Amino acid sequence: MTTEVIVVTPTEEPPTWWDAAVFLAGPNPRVPEVKSWRPEALDLIRARWTGGRLVVFSPEPATGAVRDYYGQIEWEEAGLHYADQILFWVPRDLATMPAFTTNVEWGTWHKSGKAVFGAPPEAPRNRYLRAAAESEQVPAADTLPSTVDLALAALRPTARRTAGERGVPLLIWRTPSFQQWYQTQRTANNTLLKARAEWVYRRGPGKRQVVYWALRTDIRVTAEDRTKPNQIVLSRPDQSTVVLYHPAPTPDDTVVVLVREFRSTATTSDAFIRELPGGAGPDHTSPKDQAAAEVHEETGLDLDPSRLIAHGRRQIAGTFSTHRAHLFSAELTAAEVATLRAAADTPNGEPGTTERTWVELHTYAEIRDGNLVDWPTLGMLAQVLSPRRSADGALQEAQE
């Protein structure tokens, strides 16, 4: 892969494709006599970058100090959204480079997952910025070379993006949930004309794991020969869901295991959600293994994955989110049902978290007629308790 660094300055148009992009955020000199920090940053980037075409958005005109703000604000806004990493270097000098605009940009972007922060130890009025960096686990350094290294390291592995794809930052592009959604669009011959990251939710060490994300998109819908603008695409990891049941002569009398849990989104009379055991785990965990793990975590039942029958996967809320559920079922013994009933007053949950779940057992008729679960859950129960469940489920999973 050829190494190339392209510097884009106000108000130049960026290239039509790149493998990574970085924005150099920080104070601009206001007069020509004040030395800028950006030439040194660019030299460091050119010397240290390997790995394809890197675009560097440098909001300092090639002619030197900013004198005309016509188009500058719009260009900076676009560049900040395009960037995979925003390198903040704040050598604040209250007389010559007060960095007031930088404060605004930092407040806007420090929670984005794209920022790195650097400042000389002696630079004044940076304590609040440093505290925010620590709170959000933003990588930080106190020299410009170290700050550059942090930004470049976060760009690897790169990904080539063209045209509208450039608006998808690497932290979203790398997620299985994005790739899954985008592959469906490309399979349908649709074109991503424009994208902008609106929000990400991160957790884990260094907040490096992107769990939820939202993009604003313009998509060319080939089948309808039109463009669908300003659409929000919301996503999260796929989940594994399990119907645990003890059979009866009729589906209505079949006993089903539900999990009761407080969810802040609940609109039920008691503010609890009743759902099937399930959830998402690490990206590389198989859906079946994740299903068995969720059963143990939420019900306390040790279930060998070999007992699980697969019923395929579908979107759960297709008008709201891209994520899908992998549906499984397992037939319980009378002894297992008795054990679950005996432990119904004992909460379960993932150790070290705020999750707390309670087991409930109801017949399918009680669940359906008592309005105990939401529509997607009722649909999953209907799929499993249908007499055709095993054959259809195994066939669908094999085809996928």
Rank of each mutant, 00 (worst) to 15 (best):
H323D: 11
N371C: 08
I86G: 01
W358L: 14
Q231E: 09
E350P: 01
P229D: 12
T175W: 03
P249E: 02
A197M: 14
Y82V: 01
F100Q: 11
L361H: 11
T158N: 00
Q179L: 12
A293R: 10
T339N: 11
L303H: 01
Q183V: 15
T363L: 14
Q383T: 15
P32H: 12
D253M: 02
R368C: 01
Q383L: 10
T354G: 12
V256C: 10
L215I: 12
E77G: 04
A214W: 02
T354N: 13
R314K: 09
R30H: 09
A20T: 03
T377Y: 00
E397Q: 13
R314I: 03
G300K: 00
M380F: 14
P251M: 04
G352W: 02
P347M: 13
H296M: 07
Q315G: 13
E33V: 10
T319N: 14
T357G: 08
G79T: 01
E360A: 15
V257G: 00
G312F: 07
G318E: 07
W199Q: 11
A95M: 09
V22W: 03
D218Q: 13
D283I: 11
A119L: 05
Q185E: 13
T322E: 11
A292Q: 00
S269A: 10
D238Q: 00
G206W: 06
E76V: 06
P351T: 14
E76K: 08
T363M: 13
D369E: 15
P14T: 06
N348P: 01
Y82A: 10
P98V: 06
T9F: 07
T101M: 07
A343E: 14
S240V: 02
H81V: 06
T96F: 01
T184H: 09
A163K: 11
W213M: 05
L87T: 04
F262E: 01
L340E: 05
T354W: 05
L276C: 01
Q185H: 07
F100K: 09
P387H: 03
L155G: 07
P15I: 11
G300P: 04
V242N: 00
R216I: 08
S321N: 13
P124I: 12
A83Q: 04
A83F: 02
P205S: 06
F320H: 08
P251R: 08
P176M: 05
G379A: 08
T191N: 02
A119H: 07
E77A: 15
L152M: 15
Y245R: 07
I86R: 00
L193H: 08
T241M: 04
D225R: 15
A334I: 11
H311A: 04
A266D: 03
V138H: 06
L361A: 07
K111I: 03
I6G: 00
R307A: 04
N103G: 15
L303F: 01
I6Y: 01
I316K: 12
D238W: 02
G206N: 07
L94T: 07
V31L: 10
R324G: 09
D369I: 09
R236V: 02
S135V: 04
T191W: 06
L234E: 04
R174M: 03
N189F: 10
L258Q: 05
P287S: 08
V257I: 05
E360K: 15
R236I: 03
T101Y: 03
P14D: 06
G300C: 02
R130M: 09
P59H: 09
S306I: 06
P145S: 08
L385P: 12
N189Y: 09
S321H: 12
A292C: 04
F320S: 07
T285L: 10
E400I: 14
P157K: 14
A195R: 00
G278H: 05
W49A: 12
